[in-house]
Design a protein around this nucleic acid. Structure first.
Length: 268
DNA sequence: AATCCACGCAACCGCTTTTCC
DNA sequence: GGGAAAAGCGGTTGCGTGGAT
């Protein structure tokens, strides 16, 4: 059946999301829910297609996303389920709370597939060479167009949070309770260490933001008390999202998810 | 120090499925 | 029941990063 294009291609932005766009998207969904994805970006004031917004939300901004390396157990689960289900990434993701189908798919293609079939390890470089050849050919073909390409640094603007950018939040808390814990870490970083309007920060800076964010957030209110271990070794605990989950679970305000801003957390 | 190469991951594309009217 | 729109899914690509040369 015929179908309309997913969005008006004209004038819509593509590529990496800026911190400001993330903030707009998260703020809007917090307040209104996403509702109709196609209409949502217009209402939110985003120059993105609904599909892109949905993907950004489900794969990156959702509060219940668990970030960081996959555990051995998770990898085993993926391998086992892949054996049963094949490339049904969303089905596999359903058995791994906090993991997205996209993430699982990436992990499979980059790690697990090679582990399962060593031949893949030798096949991959060939594929890479093919891709590079293609790129080179394209470069030669359109050198002048290359000069007009948007700044390659644009990709830096996607606030990759790596292992520490988001606190893991339970599914029960859902996005309705996602007022600021996760958003603040990268999306709303303007409040802490980075002006969201300033898109010129580098990846290195972003990483530093990730690592220092929670400390900064806690530092906002002098009355806050950090656990001794946290004070002793900020680098260590910034990598440990379980730690932060525990912090939140123990927080006085947990009953009211809207209070999940770390700056509002008062530890016992 | 410069360049090359492979890796990892976010995002896009196009197709399929589901939902709505 | 049929068509259109919306949502979901899986494959693929683009690009930054870091290690190797």
């Amino acid at each position: 059946m015929g179908r309309a294009p997913c969005c008006d291609k004209v004038g819509l932005k593509k590529g990496a999301w800026s911190a400001e766009e993330d903030k707009i998207l998260v703020d809007y969904i917090q307040q209104h829910g996403h509702g109709n994805w196609r209409v949502m970006p217009k209402r939110a004031g985003l120059l993105r297609c609904g599909k892109s917004c949905r993907l950004r939300w489900t794969n990156y901004l959702r509060p219940d996303i668990k970030r960081g390396n996959f555990t051995k157990e998770e990898e085993d689960t993926i391998i086992s389920l892949h054996g049963e289900l094949g490339n049904k990434w969303s089905a596999i993701a359903g058995s791994l709370p906090g993991r997205t189908d996209n993430e699982i798919k990436n992990v499979w293609h980059t790690h697990l597939k090679k582990r399962m079939d060593p031949k893949e390890a030798t096949r991959a470089p060939k594929r890479e060479r093919k891709r590079k050849k293609k790129r080179d050919a394209k470069d030669k073909l359109e050198p002048e167009q290359e000069n007009q390409k948007p700044n390659a640094d644009a990709a830096h603007h996607s606030p990759r949070c790596d292992d520490s950018g988001f606190v893991e939040v339970s599914l029960e808390q859902s996005y309705s309770g996602f007022s600021s814990a996760a958003t603040d870490s990268s999306v709303m970083s303007g409040d802490a260490t980075v002006d969201a309007k300033d898109e010129s920060f580098t990846s290195k800076e972003l990483k530093e933001i990730d690592e220092s964010f929670w400390l900064d957030a806690f530092a906002v209110d002098g009355s806050l008390q950090l656990p001794p271990a946290a004070v002793a070794d900020s680098a260590a605990f910034s990598d440990d999202m379980e730690f932060w989950l525990k912090v939140f679970m123990e927080a006085d305000h947990l009953e009211d998810p809207s209070q999940m801003n770390p700056a509002n957390v008062h530890l016992n």
